[in-house]
């Protein structure tokens, strides 16, 4: 009885250690890989208008994309040929399933293309410094 209990306890302890090692190795490697992705991807500056269309995801709505990329909603809805009525709260995936069920990824690709085309021109980092015009020296 005592030996059996000891065996059970030993099995639990060994399982805990093995599981701990496996979790640490697996998630440690993944965390390290995720950390490496931060290289050159620091936080974007405040008030920056998003310009990278590769960050557009299927769960996003047209309204959200319009606000984030500062592209009028109408332009996006026109490009995908969908009426804005009743479509504001739908994700790109839902819009694709509802309007283009046989064209996989059509809405996503079209939205990316129209955002890239219509987004406002990039803002300069700082306002141009006013340069005062040199005064002509008074004639002697």
């Amino acid at each position: 009885m005592f030996a059996q209990k000891n065996l059970k306890q030993r099995a639990i302890i060994i399982s805990l250690i093995i599981l701990g090692v496996l979790f640490t190795a697996f998630f440690g490697m993944r965390a390290f890989r995720a950390l490496k992705k931060f290289d050159g991807h620091g936080p974007p500056p405040r008030e920056k208008v998003e310009t990278d269309v590769e960050l557009i995801r299927e769960w996003m709505t047209v309204s959200f994309i319009s606000k984030t990329y500062r592209v009028p909603e109408k332009e996006i809805f026109d490009a995908i040929k969908v009426s804005p009525l009743g479509s504001h709260d739908k994700s790109l995936k839902e819009l694709n399933n509802d309007y283009y069920p046989d064209k996989d990824g059509f809405v996503m690709d079209t939205v990316k293309a129209v955002v890239l085309e219509k987004q406002p021109p990039p803002q300069p980092d700082s306002a141009p410094t006013a340069v005062s015009t040199p005064k002509t020296p008074a004639a002697p």
């Binding site: 060994i14 250690i17 090692v21 640490t24």
Partner: peptide, 14 residues
């Protein structure tokens, strides 16, 4: 990172 901490906790406890 959450999984890594869980692994370390399991290992430590074991």
């Amino acid at each position: 990172f959450g999984g890594l901490v869980l692994g370390i906790a399991l290992l430590g406890f074991g």
